[in-house]
């Protein structure tokens, strides 16, 4: 089983019961190549929702799909203008007119949550994509660079990681001034070192493995080895790491917005909605309660989806 894990993706499995199967990352990378988009996406969907996948995983992917759809359609679905104050309808309890009530200046909470979804979820995905890209690029460059440069890069990662990411992002966002862009920059700066370190670890392991050494003897260049073998081999772990990261990113972003370094008002952000509602929680609990539920639901959905991606990428963990 253990040697099985070290096999390069794309090579058919040699495990007697899974002969001919290829790794999840390989399937995913072929699925994303333009030539095979139709076939690939069908395969991915089968893989994500097919009968072989556990019920809990299917629920997780379903929730994530619904959330992403809401994020894309949020502003269209919102029944009211999320930013238009209406002093006649301030602090109304949830009811037929305003399903989730209104806030202190009479804005519809449901509409604000829906528009907030667009902002929160899409920026969370963007942050993770950027952080992952930077991490992978830095790790690959470090792996190709001379030993001392590699060492320096990894020490810099360590330094970044010795400030807790929330505090690092908080300091950076505070320095850059409150805006959505500065939150994204700050979060990317806080998250990339972990990805870089993880990727570097896998690359180091792959580049010293026997099959890479034999390819080197045949005369493959280091760059080619990196692009053709080592990076594809680390993709599984990188996908898993990235998908697990989204959940934490959503929570952390809302925390930053809660502390007031997010997008400035009147922008509808889940974190700042909670902050706004906490002063009159005893009289109008709905203003803080529902955005918090939205954050929890998204974090749990993406968290479960991350677990599911991991179990797809690593069949040996399917049973646990």
């Amino acid at each position: 089983m253990k040697t099985e894990d070290k096999l390069p993706p794309g090579l058919p499995s040699t495990h007697p019961d899974r002969r001919g199967e290829v790794s999840f990352a390989y399937r995913f990378s072929t699925a994303t190549s333009p030539l095979a988009v139709g076939r690939g996406l069908g395969g991915l969907a089968r893989r994500l929702f097919g009968a072989k996948t556990f019920l809990i995983n299917r629920i997780a992917f379903g929730l994530v799909a619904v959330l992403l759809l809401l994020a894309l359609l949020g502003p269209v679905l919102a029944p009211y203008d999320p930013n238009a104050p209406n002093t006649n309808a301030a602090l109304q309890a949830p009811g037929a007119v305003h399903w989730l009530g209104t806030d202190d200046v009479g804005r519809d909470v449901l509409s604000r949550i829906l528009t907030g979804a667009t902002q929160t979820l899409i920026s969370a995905v963007l942050i993770v994509v950027f952080a992952t890209l930077i991490g992978v690029i830095v790790a690959s460059a470090a792996a190709l660079a001379p030993r001392w440069a590699d060492e320096v890069v990894m020490r810099v990662c360590d330094m970044f990681m010795s400030i807790p990411s929330l505090v690092l992002a908080l300091g950076l966002a505070a320095a850059l001034g409150p805006s959505l862009t500065s939150i994204i920059i700050a979060m990317v700066a806080a998250l990339w070192p972990a990805t870089a370190r993880l990727t570097r670890g896998i690359l180091r392991e792959t580049m010293t493995s026997a099959y890479i050494e034999s390819a080197q003897i045949v005369g493959m260049s280091r760059l080619r080895l990196m692009v053709r073998h080592a990076i594809p081999n680390s993709l599984d772990a990188i996908y898993v790491h990235a998908s697990m990261e989204i959940s934490g990113t959503i929570v952390m972003m809302s925390g930053l917005a809660f502390l007031g370094v997010g997008a400035p008002p009147p922008s509808a952000d889940w974190g700042s909605m909670i902050a706004q509602g906490q002063d009159f929680i005893t009289t109008a609990w709905w203003v803080s309660l529902f955005p918090g539920l939205a954050i929890t639901l998204s974090a749990v959905a993406f968290g479960l989806a991350g677990d599911a991606v991991r179990s797809l990428a690593d069949p040996s963990s399917r049973r646990s």
Binding site: H15, P16, D17, R18, P315, S316, R319
Partner: peptide
């Protein structure tokens, strides 16, 4: 004496 692994616990299916 015989020892067997039940079908649902077989690693890799079968």
């Amino acid at each position: 004496l015989s020892v067997s692994v039940p079908e649902k616990l077989r690693i890799g299916g079968g």
